[in-house]
Design a protein around this nucleic acid. Sequence first.
DNA 1: TCTGGGGTCCTAGGACCC
DNA 2: TCTGGGGTCCTAGGACCC
Length: 436
Amino acid sequence: MSASLAGAPVFALQDGNNFYVSCERVFNPRLENKPVCVLSSNDGCAIARSSECKALGVKMGDPLFQLQDLVRRHGLICLSSNFALYGDLSARVLEVLSQFSPDIEPYSIDENFVRVERMRLLWPDLTQMGQAMVARVKQWVNIPTCVGFGTSKTMAKLSNHVAKKNPQFGGVFDSTSYPAKELGALLATISVGEVWGVGRRIAEKLNAMGIHTVQDLRQSSPKFIRSHFSVVMERTVAELQGISCLDLEDVAPPKQQIISSKSFGTMVSTQEELGEALTSYVTRAAEKLRAQRSVCGAVHVFVMTNRYTTRDPQYCNGITIPLPNPSADTMALAGAALAGLKAIYRKGYAFKKTGVMLLDLSPAGIVQGSWFDQVEVQSRQSDVVMAALDSLNARFGRDTVTVAAAGTQKRWVARAENRTQRFTTRWTELPKAYAK
DNA sequence: TCTGGGGTCCTAGGACCC
DNA sequence: TCTGGGGTCCTAGGACCC
């Protein structure tokens, strides 16, 4: 049994093995034991690989046209992606895990963090708990997974990695009960780039400083790391030392931006075609926006040519269009997007990709019975503030219940309460009506 | 010929204020 | 008019994650 104190957090990280491929295998058992990969949209490149596929040397992101030889000679099976299916199975996995603890944070489509320390009466041995999780997810959803335990999220992630890479652990690794000396030896065999939060760039920089393995980083001083990197890395080192800095996010916060974009299968040149694609992306993004009950204050549009070709001239550009009234209305957003497109469109290019980002999101609808419209104006002039209040009155007319203004010398917030809408608007520049 | 689509957080630096 | 410290807000860009 682990020596962790009662109440001190213990995290599990459950992670589906080769998740998309495993999902496909649920409904097509003939894919079992065969090299399989799942492709991105337009069947562009590999985004998930079975272990047999990895053994053939296929890398994440390898384009399909480079895999044709493996398809012919080794029977590599390449499948188009089916994200609706993966999302459905992900939800089922989550349901099974909720039998083990109510404190769960779905981290990605194939990963879940679980706080387990409150369940120690039921599961004094974490390894047994992890084995039960693996067995039950396999039995009920037929998805193979691994589970790692740690006293921080970062250690749970790392333990999951250990479980995945070392078959002798049977898919479960509990770093909290592993003898300290042996744990250090084990972590000294793992390269520092495997740590959650250490990407390619930071790994290079760490290597240059003589920090090559997870154990090297774990034995570094957080303050030293802070001085050469950022507060994020400082936290990572503390987490590796078993000090939990990142808690479970049990209620998912609303998105701060919503993106919808896609590459074209064949190149597109005309503004009309780009506009049609954009309109469908805006429709999808606006649905997501309304689903989280937000309105959006600015729409960003971008276009780009094919960055992989050296033959054609390159052009990429983007523009952010602020909305005078924050909205979740598809037509309003599409109008802004198309106006943006018109501004950045150039004739004579073969475009590969376009997309839209909804920015400046804020809550819409009823919040504890109050409805507000806020206008922030950068001015110390009282007449400007009064003008802002006037505009709120004009916008809501008789529906306006109260108006008020408060702020500092520079930045004023004018606020109107209204029976039908709640918006929070931030103007980064003065609304035209008030410009002097 | 053919190369994904989402997201988050942090920092530096400029504008502006007292 | 000049100088400087302390502070806020905003944006662009980089780095990371799946």
